[in-house]
């Protein structure tokens, strides 16, 4: 389905996750963050960058992985993206919701 985010029409799934990463940019990112009541800071961007790296290398994201990320610890991750940080951070980063499990 289509959703207007910022000035653009973006393709998203029923949970609001971007379907096509090519449509993602910093402005889209800030708008989605705003919808989650998150104001992007330097630290947020570092996390988004880390998530993009992982996604590009097809490495699964996990809470455990955050511990070893060298970017932030889990506590900070929860503070930056309150209430389900993995789900929120991936939503804002424009990549699919992590399939944590099998």
């Amino acid at each position: 389905m289509k959703k207007v985010i910022g000035q653009k029409e973006i393709d998203v799934n029923e949970e609001g996750y971007l379907v096509d990463f090519k449509q993602w940019d910093r402005e889209v990112c800030e708008c989605i963050a705003g919808e989650c009541n998150i104001v992007m800071t330097e630290k947020h961007w570092e996390v988004i960058e880390y998530i993009h790296d992982k996604h590009e290398n097809q490495e699964p994201l996990s809470i455990r992985g955050i511990k070893k990320s060298g970017v932030i610890n889990i506590k900070e991750f929860y503070q930056l993206f309150p209430g389900g940080p993995l789900k929120k951070a991936t939503l804002i980063a424009g990549i699919p919701k992590p399939k944590s499990c099998i």
Binding site: S62, I63, R64, S100, C101, I102
Partner: peptide, 8 residues
């Protein structure tokens, strides 16, 4: 505790 676990 965390996933994955055997026999989920």
């Amino acid at each position: 505790t965390e996933m994955p676990i055997k026999c989920p």
